[in-house]
Nucleic acid binder design. Structure first.
Lengths: 330, 330
DNA sequence: GTTTTCCGGAGAAGCGCTTCGACGGCGTGG
DNA sequence: CCACGCCGTCGAAGCGCTTCTCCGGAAAAC
């Protein structure tokens, strides 16, 4: 591998001049710059990442901490990762992948100066990692909204706003009795705050529009779907529409409705909020803009790496797409 | 951040002694070792990754190159990634994630000495990256089997063996006319060699067992499934079993069969090879052991990082799991 | 008792890069 | 016409670690 000294020799300048040409941190005459650039490309020179990191205390790498447990939708995570990697690369950064959720990994990569900052996914309401991250002092962006962000910036989907949009859509069609099929009990138990935020938005939006409501969580099984429907109807007789915040349970729910002869949207309107629908299952609703969230998180992170400053929360929204699963009530 | 000099001072030894305690590359008396370890944990010392990389020309990082195009099953990729990260961490390595498929990224991370080696996913039969990787000279493991591996080690699922196992299972049940529902035309066109390897194994196994065959690719749409069935029947009248190598088309295929009133397995046995079946759709068949492949790839890579040597191909198999979608022919 | 061996530890030389301070040579203003 | 300032470049000092070489002393060999 060629070193900066090799380049300097070929170009007939000093090593520091080569460094300044490459970094642009000092004015260099056009002639010298040209000679250096020629030498760089002739030798195929590329700075040694470790040496650069040592001298500049900048690694050009960000850590991406993703959960791998089953509660998350792999498609959404994948999109998210894509957004992160693409954006990082667009800003001359690489991405180190961390999957273990223990805090040990976070400490390791930061105190070894392996990364310039971190993007941490799937932050729970009382996530123990938040305190650790704040203490570590490296630039960090949280994806998810903890109760106490400890001054760290947060990015997430506006679940409350999405629910308001969805219920407003149904209300505009004339629906006055709407049930919410909530997230799986396991994800609620895990403290993923988005379930609550969506529920609040739903109730507030319904109240504004004069819509009667009922809510129930839903396990991602056939029986879970039937039980959820029964519970909703017990609390709210004959709902004319359903808002579903549970992509995993959706197939079972639709199966249960089909089994009892209910047609969508003729007998019942259904709106979905969550992961992009797979295949034929696409329903009217809002999808989590995972790619945008990833992009936004990285942009926020890189800003703080350049100029550390306090965190602010950023909620992203997405449009309601009509795919024909809603209609006026009969 | 504490440096090795700080540790040395606290422990009352020289920096080199600290280094040797940490690396274990020289004998150190129990007494000094204890003092050094005490100092290390008291200061929370962790070696600077860049400095270490510069001095030792070892980064402790491996690159994982994954495709993000739609032809791959996200669930399988996720499992694979999990296997890679978990295994790497178990051997004190981290994982840098590359998603762009251009060769530029490969050159960048290797010639910048960002990584010690690479695991490259989704290698096509004539993948242009293989030549580049061989030329770069860093330890590399390919996941997939190119026509010419250029001396690089390969790891993959034994698709041919899986097909033989599946057809043997059907033959043992008494089936004598079996159709193969192949991969999507797009993945075949992309040169993903596994489609061909599976087909060869299928034909060879069928020939051994005296089973008549027909094969057809299958697009992952409802019409694609119907067309595929029609094509198979045109070539092989009244097949009694189907081997499906196409998880994306599977739901449509089952839908088409249900629509024509064919029951599985009473009227038709179905065996699947591919991604683990989602939800209720699980069929008798073999699943790609993505986790194992990831693990195996990293193990092979780390071996070569320690002691470079030529590549060999390793094919992993998985068991046929009976989930009740096969039965003797009527 | 002397010589050899071996073991544990110290010292120092880099690894390849960034960046600060210094320094000529030029143009400008007084 | 001289002093001053600015621009472009160089030299050198690290950044924090690994590893080679060397060295003193204790144990082993003779």
């Amino acid at each position: 591998m060629a070193t900066i000294a090799d380049v300097a020799q070929v170009a007939g300048v000093s090593a520091s001049t080569v460094s300044y040409v490459l970094s642009g941190k000092r004015a260099i005459s056009a002639a010298t710059r040209a000679r250096v650039e020629e030498a760089v490309s002739r030798l195929g020179y590329r700075p040694h990442a470790g040496a650069r990191a040592l001298a500049s205390s900048r690694t050009g790498v960000i850590a991406l901490v993703v959960p791998l447990h089953d509660a998350v939708d792999v498609g959404v995570v994948m999109q998210f990762v894509r957004g992160v990697v693409t954006t990082a690369r667009a800003h001359e950064h690489d991405v180190l992948l961390l999957t273990q959720e223990e805090t040990a990994g976070l400490e390791r990569v930061t105190s070894a100066s392996l990364v310039d900052g971190l993007v941490v996914l799937d932050i729970g309401v009382d996530d123990p990692r938040v305190g650790v991250l704040a203490r570590l002092g490296r630039p960090t962006v949280l994806v998810g909204i903890p109760r106490d962000p400890h001054g760290l910036p947060c990015v997430d989907f506006d679940f409350a706003g999405a629910a308001r949009t969805a219920v407003a859509h149904l209300a505009a069609l004339g629906h006055r009795r709407v049930g919410l099929v909530g997230a799986t009990p396991s994800s609620v138990r895990r403290g993923a705050g988005y379930a609550d935020r969506l529920c609040e938005g739903f109730l507030a939006g319904a109240a504004d529009a004069g819509v009667a409501t009922a809510t129930a969580p839903c396990a991602a099984t056939a029986e879970g779907a039937r039980a959820c429907l029964a519970e909703l109807r017990a609390r709210l007789p004959a709902p004319t529409a359903l808002l579903v915040h549970n992509e995993a349970a959706l197939p079972h729910l639709l199966g249960a409705l089909a089994a009892e002869g209910a047609r969508v949207p003729a007998d019942l309107s259904v709106v979905s909020i969550g992961a992009p629908g797979a295949g034929e299952r696409a329903l009217t609703g809002l999808e989590v803009p995972a790619l945008d969230i990833g992009r936004s998180a990285v942009e926020a992170l890189l800003e703080r790496i350049d100029a550390p400053r306090a965190g602010e929360t950023r909620l992203l929204s997405s449009p309601l797409v009509d795919r024909g699963s809603t209609a006026p009530p009969r």
